[in-house]
Amino acid sequence: MPFVRKLAGLVGFLLLWEAAGRLGLVDARVLPPPSEVLVRFGLLFTDRGFVAGAVSTVLSWAIALLCATVLGVGVGLLLGSVPALRLITMPVIEFLRPLPSVALIPLAIALLGTQAQTKIVLGVFAATWPILLNTSYALGEVDPRLLETVRCFRVSRWRRLVGVTLPSIGPFVLTGVRISASIALIAIVGTEFLAGGSIGLGQYAFVQGTSGGRMDVVLAATVFAGLFGCLVNAGFLAVQRRWVSWGSVASSSGEVAA
């Protein structure tokens, strides 16, 4: 039932958009109706420029998210377990975290050039924070009684980390990674859009929009990016439900807050 209702909302939105174009409320060259965009969406996959761009974007995104996860979990564990270190670094983190990664594009280009490494580094920069903060926060939330229990049984330090701490913080970390997945995508596509000379979805949309005036293509590429983001999010939610069902009773009833 909720699924049908969600779908009804989407269909209604598309109908309104279609009607706005057909009735002449908006210029169809600026905002082409969804029927045209959908046709164009299908044709995108025959466009070599688009496919190359999409592959570059998705690959960069995957690399960036992987790096951000390793970095975020690693540093998060360190900061979470050494309070003094956390105290010193928090002001720096609080300063760096809200910096929009697009504002760092000129600096990144000057340092790294305009190749894929630039957008990957900016993607990592933007995506590390939620994972890092969730990890270090979750460390403080590990049930002390659980840690005491395994300490009593003289479980080795290593197995306490791998068998108790990591599974305890797992749900929090996974939520961080899920949030970071969309942040990384936004940062990477944004960088492609603003930093000329690279390939990728953002660059593709930029060229099609400014020099070609092809808003239908731009929107079709946007739909692709949006769909990709949705699928990734749904994938992470499914993983969360499947593997950390013990984390919340709510998930066993099938309702997880997105």
Binding site: L146, G163, P167
Partner: peptide, 10 residues
């Protein structure tokens, strides 16, 4: 005494 918190839920 609070046995439920001393079991590993996963």
């Amino acid at each position: 005494q609070d046995y439920s918190r001393s079991l590993l839920p996963w």
